[in-house]
Every structure is written in C-alpha cells, then in structure tokens.
C-alpha cells in the first residue's frame, strides 16, 4: 500500500524529486518485506518442500491432508461461520449505534459514545474471564435466572456462541469508529434535502446514507473479519474444545502435537482467506481515493 501511495503523491513533473520520495518509502517497504512478506514466502516454501534424507522434494501432502481431514475442515468451517456471524452481528449492532451517535444531539449521545469505545481498553483475556463470570455456568445471569425461578438456560460458554459474543463485544469500538467517520461525510443538509423531497427515515437511510458510507462499511467489515478470522485468546478461552477456530487449532498443532509443518500449513491457509478480505479492504480504500 505504501508503494501505491508514493505513485499517487509524486507529481509527474517533479522528476528530480522522485528518488528522495522513493527513499522515504523504501524503509517501510523493506521492513514490510523483511517482517511480513519474507516469513510468508518462507512459510509457503516450508510447507511445499519436504526435507528427506536425499534432500528436499516438492510435496503438497500437508495441504492434501488438511483438505481431506474432517477435523481440519470442520475447524475451518467453524472459523468461517464465526467470522461471518460476527460480521453480520457487528453491522447490526454498530450501524444503529453509529447512526445514533451521528444524528442525535442529546447529551446521552456522549455517554453512549464513551460506552461504545470502552471495550477497546479492555484486554481480551480480562474480557474472557468477565464473560465467564457473567454468562458462564453459575455466573451472574445464571444465578439471577435461578433466583427468579426461571429455568436453567444453557450458557454460551464453551459453545461456538461463546467466542461470537466475545469477539463482537471486542470489535464494537473499532467498527463504530470507522462507521462514524464514514457518517461524518454525510452532511446534515444532504439528509434534510432528502426529507424535503419526501423521503421517510428508512428511505433516507437506504437511499442517501448507506450509499455514502458503503466504503466505510466495507472497511469496517474487512477490519473486523481480518481480526476475527485469526483471533486466538477469545476462542481459546471461551470456545468449545472441538471444533475449534483456526487460531487455537494452529497453536495446539504447533505446541501440543509438535507438528510445525501442519501448523504452518494451517497458517498459510488462514492467510489465504485473510488476503481475500485484505484485497477487499485495499480495493475500497483505493476506490475512496478516486471518487
């Protein structure tokens, strides 16, 4: 992305300045290559070239294993499911919050904003234990329900919904902030003009606001998805033992099963999915630049 930037900024006629610009960009690019691109390449190489006594030989064995192993596949699908459900829930929760914050001028809005941003300052591990205390077996909700004579409900703790609740909570601040900044581009007058020609509130939302913040929605979703897809702590602590999300799965394959090659394969596959969303993000950013 940095390289794309320089291409945009460097004016064509400033021929002589260009080397300095490139030099400035070179440092981060090299850092990215060294810390990110190279590890990726080497990971792909590690998984595709198997060390045998006679030397290395090309093999897609670990990939074949992953895509034929029922357990690996169910881990992948539970990860995709969690990510998808979280993304939808995030939009459903954050869009109304962001709309409220943008268009309300009551004092309450300030407090709501504070609350919405609050999860950002809570480390996920603390969040996990708070979650267990509140929603876990014999947690606050359970006890309250008991006290009121309500039937025992199954706690989402250690089910696939556990991580979903944690991850959604965890991602609310960033999503709200991104949507809010997008909504900043929609002027009050543009909305009033829409109401003036006869649009009711939902029509204003659908025809005027959403098209204007489509990009922000994409950016918010790609951010959330990228974070959630490869998240570790929340699914590890709150999620079921099996199937597990890719984060804990990789960690266990690596640490407990001492199988680095399969762990790296899992990582490369996770990366493959993430890069799709990454491209989504880059595309929406690029679209933002050229209106």
């Amino acid at each position: 992305m940095t390289t794309i930037d320089s291409g945009h900024i460097a004016p064509v006629q400033a021929e002589r300045r260009r080397p300095y610009g490139l030099l400035l960009v070179a440092a981060p690019v090299l850092l990215v290559v060294w810390l990110i691109i190279w590890p990726i390449i080497s990971a792909v190489i590690t998984t595709l070239w198997v060390q045998t006594p006679e030397g290395s030989e090309f093999s897609t064995g670990t990939y074949q294993f992953f895509f034929s192993d029922g357990y690996s596949l169910s881990n992948l699908s539970v990860t995709l499911w969690t990510t998808g459900v979280c993304a939808i829930l995030l939009l459903l929760i954050c869009l109304p919050i962001a709309l409220y914050l943008r268009f309300s001028d009551s004092k309450v809005a300030g407090y709501v904003q504070g609350l919405a941003i609050f999860p950002m300052f809570v480390p996920s591990i603390i969040l996990s234990f708070a979650f267990i205390r509140v929603l876990g077996p014999n947690g606050t909700v359970d006890l309250l329900a008991n006290a009121m004579g309500l039937p025992k409900i199954r706690s989402p703790y250690l089910t696939a919904w556990g991580p979903v609740i944690g991850l959604v909570w965890d991602n609310i601040p960033l999503t709200v902030l991104i949507l809010l900044s997008g909504l900043g581009n929609v002027s009050n007058q543009a909305i009033e003009a829409a109401r003036d020609v006869g649009a009711r509130k939902l029509q204003v939302l659908w025809y005027i606001i959403l098209p204007r913040i489509g990009n922000s929605v994409l950016v918010a979703i790609s951010f959330a998805v990228l974070g959630i897809f490869s998240s570790f702590t929340l699914p590890y602590v709150l999620g079921p033992a099996a199937p597990e999300m890719m984060g804990p799965f990789m960690q266990r394959t690596f640490r407990e099963l001492f199988d680095p090659r399969n762990a790296i394969t899992q990582a490369v596959i996770t990366f493959g999915f993430c890069i799709v969303f990454g491209l989504f993000y880059v595309r929406s950013v690029a679209k933002n630049r050229t209106p």
Partner: peptide, 20 residues
C-alpha cells in the same frame, strides 16, 4: 407535520446535492 409530508421545497445554502 414532518418535512417529508409538507408541500414545501427547500434550497439550502450549500447545495446539499447527493453526490452519489
């Protein structure tokens, strides 16, 4: 009566056109 139901048409100071 809310604006969407009034027989009035408003032209704002900054044009407020829908840029999309």
């Amino acid at each position: 009566v809310p604006p969407e139901k009034r027989p009035t048409g408003m032209v704002f100071q900054s044009h407020a056109l829908w840029t999309h």
